[in-house]
Design a protein around this nucleic acid. Structure first.
Ligand SMILES: [Mn+2]
Ligand SMILES: [Mn+2]
Ligand SMILES: [Zn+2]
Ligand SMILES: [Zn+2]
Lengths: 132, 132
DNA sequence: ACACTTTTTTAGAATGGTTATAAACTAGAC
DNA sequence: GTCTAGTTTATAACCATTCTAAAAAAGTGT
């Protein structure tokens, strides 16, 4: 199993639940955006056994901390995650309530001119809201 | 009172509560970022009478809908608002959990090259996360 | 295989920001 | 003043997320 080593290298025990969540998240054809609720439904559909909601939360947060998932800053009552961990940006379709990837090449280079003493830039994220 | 007309023009009745919230929000020296909880505390400190939490929520959402406040896309369990409604961006200091304005001139021009059929861009927001 | 420790899973409870409810109140129109 | 639609309010409800503590599983050593 290809995820066993990945988890071990991260100091996470390769449990059955974590490996199954890896499959759902990282074996998909394309990267995708999801909420915890989305993911729980996907797991229920794709897998025959049940994974408790607490474990899904724990695992997603553990993966996010290890850098295997990204959290997307957006105004929503639910937290959005992204399996695309490359440096990229997003369209947010307000009508459809859907996120669409904007590759770095789809956005001109972003140059932050202001500096804050003693702080360094960790990430730069662009959210482009779309209307009809 | 300078806010009476503003509210009337927006189709909002100039109630005592709304006028007082206007004062707290828009009479400040500088624009500022706040959560509903922040605002409720500020109101309690600055005003002698109490405004119910439901009214604060209602008013903030009404003002946001009218464009007098902006909601800031950020991952937090609380919603952040901004009295600075100019087109601008934000630093988010992860350690201090504080937002800092980035004027448009502090960020190079942003050119979104990708187009989505039938959709137009409503806003472009940049969030720059800061770490030590 | 077994004993032992640490990590993980789990169901369910608790938390907390936000929204809904419905009754009392108020602003504006006539 | 009367009337009506809009607003405020306390409180309940909602619901995404986190916490709890007990059971299960994983890793380690023998
Ligand atoms: Mn997280
Ligand atoms: Mn709103
Ligand atoms: Zn993405
Ligand atoms: Zn701002």
């Amino acid at each position: 199993m290809k995820y066993i080593e990945k988890l071990r290298n991260s100091g996470l025990r390769p449990t059955k639940q974590r490996l199954q969540i890896c499959e759902v998240l990282f074996d998909a054809e394309k990267t995708f955006h999801f909420t915890i609720n989305d993911l729980a439904n996907k797991i229920k559909k794709q897998l025959n056994n049940k994974i408790s909601l607490a474990t899904i939360y724990n695992t997603v947060h553990a993966f996010e901390k290890k850098g295997y998932l990204k959290q997307i800053p957006i105004n929503s009552n639910q937290t959005y995650f992204d399996t695309n961990i490359s440096d990229h940006h997003h369209f947010y379709d307000l009508k459809e309530e859907k996120l669409i990837d904007l590759e770095n090449s789809d956005v001109g280079p972003i140059n932050i001119l202001k500096k804050i003493e003693g702080k360094k830039i960790k990430s730069v994220e662009v959210l482009v809201k779309l209307e009809d």
